[in-house]
Write a protein that binds this DNA or RNA. Structure first.
Lengths: 206, 206
DNA sequence: CCTGTTTTCAAACAATCGTTTGAAGTCTAG
DNA sequence: CTAGACTTCAAACGATTGTTTGAAAACAGG
């Protein structure tokens, strides 16, 4: 009987794992630290997820399923509206991630976990992400290609690669700019998003 | 007596640690893996470096001292030449990192280690890097400010933060674009650098 | 209330972690 | 050649790693 509603053991493990993976990395966060933070027995991880590797995958799945859905939903809306411009397309890609990073019921650190996945050159993890969520990037790439017909395929892919890097790095809050005192997290994030879209659109167009 | 010249125990440890930190992260690479790869006794790490944390710092110091020196040297040349333009400034920042990533006598994976340092939100490591090498970014920021007088301080810092993110991510080779078959590593890297400068310059200017 | 399933738990597993030890080996100056 | 400093080595330290176990607890439908 606590003030906060009681989440299931599964959910508590996922939340604690997400936070600790963001802070200390996948290898750096131990299952004992995770289960202690989740207020759950150590064996619960292997009972519910089978192994630490499976837990890691599940941390991604929990967020990326919805994130990908929202991104493609916004992309579809833009496509339906006919001629979109670059900023709207970038907005469709970024906004769902922004919402996630502002979600107080968890998820506020997930983008950092996602950025860690890029840093891990772990081929297994990369394949998992590519196999399950690569189609999102593919769909967006096609939309960008339609909007930037003057760029040949190779040129476009290079620019998108760089753009994804800038977005990933920024959304993970890896930069040196700190939130100003008196500024809310939301204001800070929204300001970052504005600059991010402006910067990236210029880079793609140039 | 081997074909390759004999490096000192210290150097071999640093090289092996760099490679393994790049591949598996600081927590993910154990000292036993490092010493085995370096063909060196386990105790040698603590003898020569005191601790794993000190070894990590030394891995950075070995490369960043020279990298920072070269960057500032190129920056000084540009300043001396009078009016520079954005692309030259970005080139001064990137080229030393590019050379490092092409150095076959080691260093080819260091940029990946550096990117990992950003992913680690470890405050100790961040302070170490900021205290010892932060002045390089400061000097470059001042040069960018002179070149982009229409941007106010806050706007400039946001753009530079995003630009550093794009550079870090790309130089660490975190992207999805693979080197084409038949293309040398040098050609691949130089092509990446060209796109990177073009993209970033546009983002800063816009 | 009882039976069978699902979940939690303390305890232990072998393996690996960073670090320390003291002796053996290598080197260099006198 | 020898004394002393520097470096390497195998072995062990206690602590921590992911995972497994079998029993206790909680829950379910009949």
């Amino acid at each position: 009987m606590q003030g906060t509603p009681q989440f299931s053991t599964r959910q508590r493990i996922l939340g604690a794992a997400e936070a600790l993976f963001a802070e200390r990395g996948f290898a750096g966060a131990s299952l004992r630290q995770v289960t202690a933070a989740a207020n759950v027995n150590l064996a619960a991880v292997n009972y519910h997820f089978g192994s630490k590797d499976n837990l890691i995958e599940e941390v991604f799945r929990r967020r990326l399923d919805e994130l990908s859905r929202k991104r493609l939903e916004l992309l579809a809306k833009i496509d339906a509206a006919g001629g979109a411009h670059l900023e709207a397309l970038l907005d469709a890609f970024i906004t769902p991630a922004l919402e996630l990073s502002l979600d107080r019921r968890g998820g506020s650190v997930f983008m950092r976990v996602l950025a860690r996945a890029f840093a891990e050159h772990n081929s297994h993890l990369r394949r998992f992400l590519s196999d399950n969520y690569g189609y999102v990037l593919k769909d967006f790439a096609a939309a960008f290609a339609r909007l930037l017909p003057h760029l040949d395929r190779e040129e476009l892919y290079w620019r998108l690669d760089i753009a994804v890097g800038a977005l990933t790095y920024a959304m993970a809050d890896f930069g040196v700019i700190q939130r100003r005192t008196g500024q809310s997290e939301r204001e800070h994030r929204e300001q970052m998003t504005r600059h991010l879209i402006h910067f990236t659109a210029a880079g793609l167009r140039a």
